[in-house]
Computed example of a mutant assay.
Amino acid sequence: MELTTWYLEQTDPSRIRPARQPEVPVEIRRAEVPSVELNRYLYTAVGGGWHWTDRLGWDWQQWQDWVTAPGVETWMVSVRGTPAGYAELDGRTPGEVEIAYFGLLPQFAGQRIGGHLLTTTLTEAWRLPDRWPDRPPVGRVWVHTCSWDGPAALANYQARGMELYRTDVTSVDEPAATPGPWPGANRP
Protein backbone atom coordinates (compact mmCIF):
# COMPACT_ATOMS: atom_id res chain seq x y z
CA MET A 1 0.00 0.00 0.00
CA GLU A 2 1.04 3.62 -0.37
CA LEU A 3 1.89 5.76 2.64
CA THR A 4 1.91 9.53 2.13
CA THR A 5 3.96 11.64 4.52
CA TRP A 6 3.48 15.40 4.60
CA TYR A 7 6.09 17.77 6.08
CA LEU A 8 4.88 21.16 7.24
CA GLU A 9 6.62 24.16 8.74
CA GLN A 10 6.07 27.60 10.12
CA THR A 11 8.83 30.19 9.81
CA ASP A 12 7.32 33.06 11.76
CA PRO A 13 5.15 33.06 14.88
CA SER A 14 2.93 35.73 13.35
CA ARG A 15 1.61 33.01 11.01
CA ILE A 16 -0.17 31.17 13.83
CA ARG A 17 -3.90 31.17 13.13
CA PRO A 18 -5.64 30.51 16.45
CA ALA A 19 -8.37 27.91 16.59
CA ARG A 20 -11.80 28.52 18.04
CA GLN A 21 -12.27 27.69 21.69
CA PRO A 22 -13.01 24.04 22.49
CA GLU A 23 -16.58 22.93 23.16
CA VAL A 24 -15.58 21.92 26.70
CA PRO A 25 -13.35 23.68 29.26
CA VAL A 26 -9.76 22.48 28.97
CA GLU A 27 -6.47 23.07 30.72
CA ILE A 28 -3.14 22.91 28.88
CA ARG A 29 -0.02 22.59 30.98
CA ARG A 30 3.59 21.67 30.50
CA ALA A 31 4.69 18.56 32.37
CA GLU A 32 7.58 20.28 34.11
CA VAL A 33 8.72 17.12 35.90
CA PRO A 34 9.89 14.64 33.23
CA SER A 35 8.04 11.34 33.67
CA VAL A 36 8.81 8.21 31.67
CA GLU A 37 5.51 6.67 32.70
CA LEU A 38 3.46 9.71 31.68
CA ASN A 39 5.08 10.01 28.27
CA ARG A 40 4.77 6.29 27.52
CA TYR A 41 1.13 6.34 28.61
CA LEU A 42 0.33 9.32 26.36
CA TYR A 43 2.25 7.80 23.44
CA THR A 44 0.36 4.50 23.58
CA ALA A 45 -3.04 5.96 24.50
CA VAL A 46 -2.97 8.55 21.72
CA GLY A 47 -0.94 6.72 19.08
CA GLY A 48 -2.08 3.16 19.58
CA GLY A 49 -4.85 3.52 17.03
CA TRP A 50 -2.67 5.29 14.46
CA HIS A 51 0.23 2.87 13.96
CA TRP A 52 2.63 4.69 16.29
CA THR A 53 5.08 1.86 16.82
CA ASP A 54 8.56 3.38 16.65
CA ARG A 55 8.85 3.75 20.44
CA LEU A 56 7.02 0.61 21.55
CA GLY A 57 10.31 -1.24 21.89
CA TRP A 58 11.98 1.46 23.97
CA ASP A 59 13.13 0.41 27.41
CA TRP A 60 12.91 2.59 30.50
CA GLN A 61 16.35 4.15 29.94
CA GLN A 62 15.55 5.16 26.35
CA TRP A 63 12.38 6.87 27.55
CA GLN A 64 14.31 8.53 30.39
CA ASP A 65 16.97 9.82 27.99
CA TRP A 66 14.23 11.27 25.78
CA VAL A 67 12.09 12.99 28.41
CA THR A 68 15.10 14.52 30.18
CA ALA A 69 16.89 15.77 27.06
CA PRO A 70 17.40 19.56 27.19
CA GLY A 71 14.86 21.20 24.88
CA VAL A 72 12.35 18.33 24.97
CA GLU A 73 8.98 19.23 26.46
CA THR A 74 5.63 17.53 26.98
CA TRP A 75 2.44 19.58 26.95
CA MET A 76 -0.76 17.91 28.07
CA VAL A 77 -4.36 18.97 27.61
CA SER A 78 -6.92 17.80 30.14
CA VAL A 79 -10.68 17.99 30.51
CA ARG A 80 -11.84 18.21 34.13
CA GLY A 81 -8.57 16.65 35.27
CA THR A 82 -8.59 13.79 32.77
CA PRO A 83 -5.76 13.64 30.19
CA ALA A 84 -7.25 14.32 26.77
CA GLY A 85 -4.13 14.56 24.59
CA TYR A 86 -0.64 15.89 24.34
CA ALA A 87 2.17 17.37 22.29
CA GLU A 88 5.88 16.68 22.51
CA LEU A 89 8.26 19.42 21.45
CA ASP A 90 11.79 18.56 20.36
CA GLY A 91 13.96 21.66 20.59
CA ARG A 92 17.32 19.87 20.55
CA THR A 93 18.32 21.17 17.09
CA PRO A 94 19.51 24.79 17.31
CA GLY A 95 17.08 27.25 15.77
CA GLU A 96 14.20 24.87 15.23
CA VAL A 97 11.53 22.97 17.12
CA GLU A 98 9.88 19.81 15.89
CA ILE A 99 6.42 18.85 17.04
CA ALA A 100 7.54 15.27 17.56
CA TYR A 101 4.16 13.90 18.61
CA PHE A 102 0.70 15.41 18.77
CA GLY A 103 -2.76 14.01 19.27
CA LEU A 104 -5.86 13.36 21.34
CA LEU A 105 -7.29 10.33 23.07
CA PRO A 106 -10.20 9.03 20.96
CA GLN A 107 -13.01 10.09 23.29
CA PHE A 108 -11.94 13.74 23.04
CA ALA A 109 -11.87 14.04 19.23
CA GLY A 110 -14.43 16.25 17.54
CA GLN A 111 -14.71 18.82 20.37
CA ARG A 112 -12.31 21.44 18.91
CA ILE A 113 -9.69 20.47 21.49
CA GLY A 114 -7.08 19.55 18.87
CA GLY A 115 -7.05 22.95 17.19
CA HIS A 116 -6.82 24.70 20.54
CA LEU A 117 -3.99 22.40 21.68
CA LEU A 118 -2.13 22.99 18.41
CA THR A 119 -2.47 26.77 18.78
CA THR A 120 -0.88 26.52 22.23
CA THR A 121 1.73 24.03 21.02
CA LEU A 122 2.87 26.35 18.24
CA THR A 123 2.94 29.35 20.57
CA GLU A 124 5.03 27.44 23.11
CA ALA A 125 7.34 26.04 20.43
CA TRP A 126 8.23 29.59 19.40
CA ARG A 127 8.78 30.49 23.08
CA LEU A 128 10.94 27.44 23.86
CA PRO A 129 14.18 29.48 24.25
CA ASP A 130 12.46 31.44 27.06
CA ARG A 131 12.39 28.20 29.05
CA TRP A 132 15.75 26.90 27.80
CA PRO A 133 18.06 29.95 27.86
CA ASP A 134 20.94 28.03 26.28
CA ARG A 135 18.87 27.59 23.09
CA PRO A 136 19.12 30.13 20.25
CA PRO A 137 16.00 31.85 18.94
CA VAL A 138 13.61 29.63 16.99
CA GLY A 139 13.48 30.26 13.25
CA ARG A 140 11.34 27.30 12.29
CA VAL A 141 8.72 25.00 13.81
CA TRP A 142 8.00 21.84 11.85
CA VAL A 143 6.03 18.61 11.95
CA HIS A 144 5.32 15.62 9.80
CA THR A 145 2.10 13.65 9.56
CA CYS A 146 1.07 10.78 7.38
CA SER A 147 -1.92 9.07 5.82
CA TRP A 148 -2.03 6.65 8.78
CA ASP A 149 -2.55 9.52 11.26
CA GLY A 150 -5.92 10.88 12.32
CA PRO A 151 -8.08 12.17 9.46
CA ALA A 152 -8.06 15.75 10.80
CA ALA A 153 -4.28 15.98 11.37
CA LEU A 154 -3.14 17.54 8.08
CA ALA A 155 -6.07 19.98 7.94
CA ASN A 156 -5.45 21.06 11.55
CA TYR A 157 -1.78 21.82 10.90
CA GLN A 158 -2.64 23.82 7.79
CA ALA A 159 -5.52 25.65 9.50
CA ARG A 160 -3.12 26.81 12.24
CA GLY A 161 -0.81 28.38 9.64
CA MET A 162 1.70 25.64 8.92
CA GLU A 163 2.74 25.32 5.28
CA LEU A 164 3.45 22.15 3.35
CA TYR A 165 7.04 22.00 2.11
CA ARG A 166 7.49 18.33 1.15
CA THR A 167 5.40 15.28 0.39
CA ASP A 168 6.78 11.73 0.22
CA VAL A 169 4.90 8.71 -1.06
CA THR A 170 6.35 5.30 -0.27
CA SER A 171 5.21 1.73 -0.66
CA VAL A 172 4.88 -0.10 2.63
CA ASP A 173 3.44 -3.37 3.81
CA GLU A 174 0.02 -2.79 5.27
CA PRO A 175 0.06 -3.66 8.96
CA ALA A 176 -2.44 -6.26 10.05
CA ALA A 177 -3.89 -3.97 12.71
CA THR A 178 -3.01 -1.00 14.86
CA PRO A 179 -1.36 -1.99 18.14
CA GLY A 180 -3.91 -0.19 20.30
CA PRO A 181 -2.97 1.35 23.64
CA TRP A 182 -2.64 -2.14 25.15
CA PRO A 183 -2.77 -5.67 23.71
CA GLY A 184 -6.20 -6.45 22.30
CA ALA A 185 -7.44 -2.85 22.41
CA ASN A 186 -7.23 -2.06 18.70
CA ARG A 187 -9.44 0.65 17.28
CA PRO A 188 -11.13 0.21 13.92
Rank of each mutant, 00 (worst) to 15 (best):
V24H: 03
W75I: 02
V24G: 03
R112S: 12
L42A: 11
T53C: 11
G57M: 07
H51T: 08
Q21H: 09
G81R: 09
G114Q: 07
Q61C: 03
G49Y: 00
D12C: 11
H51I: 12
P22M: 14
G110L: 08
Y101W: 12
E73P: 00
Y86S: 09
W52L: 02
V72T: 04
R55C: 07
R80V: 02
L104A: 04
M76N: 00
R20F: 10
R92K: 09
L117D: 07
A100D: 14
Q107S: 13
P13V: 01
S35Q: 11
P18M: 08
G48E: 02
E124F: 04
E88N: 12
I16A: 05
P25Q: 05
E37W: 03
G91P: 07
L42D: 06
W60C: 04
G85S: 10
W60T: 14
L105E: 10
A31N: 12
P18E: 12
G103W: 01
H51A: 08
T120G: 03
G71E: 06
A125H: 01
V36G: 04
P25M: 04
V77L: 09
E88C: 07
L122S: 09
P18T: 07
E23H: 13
G110C: 07
W52H: 02
G95P: 05
L38V: 09
E98G: 13
G47Q: 07
Q10A: 10
Q21A: 15
W52C: 01
D59A: 00
P13F: 03
E27L: 15
W66L: 15
T93S: 15
I16Y: 05
W60D: 15
G49V: 00
W60A: 13
R30F: 09
W50H: 13
P70Q: 13
Y7A: 03
Y101A: 12
E96A: 10
L104V: 06
W50D: 09
V24A: 04
T74I: 11
F108M: 01
A69Q: 14
L56D: 10
G91T: 07
R20V: 13
E32H: 07
A84Y: 02
Q111W: 08
R40A: 14
Y101S: 12
D59H: 03
R17Y: 00
P34K: 02
I99F: 02
T44E: 15
W66S: 12
V72Y: 00
V77T: 05
I16W: 05
A31L: 15
V67A: 05
A45Q: 09
T11K: 15
V79K: 13
R92I: 02
I16L: 09
W58L: 03
Q61N: 13
R112H: 14
V46W: 10
Y86D: 06
P34R: 02
T11P: 09
V97R: 00
Y43S: 03
Y101F: 14
W63K: 02
T121E: 06
L8F: 01
G103V: 01
E73I: 00
L42Y: 06
P18W: 09
A31Q: 15
T93A: 15
R92M: 05
P106N: 11
P34H: 03
A31S: 14
Y41G: 02
S14T: 10
P83H: 13
E73V: 00
Y101M: 13
E23V: 10
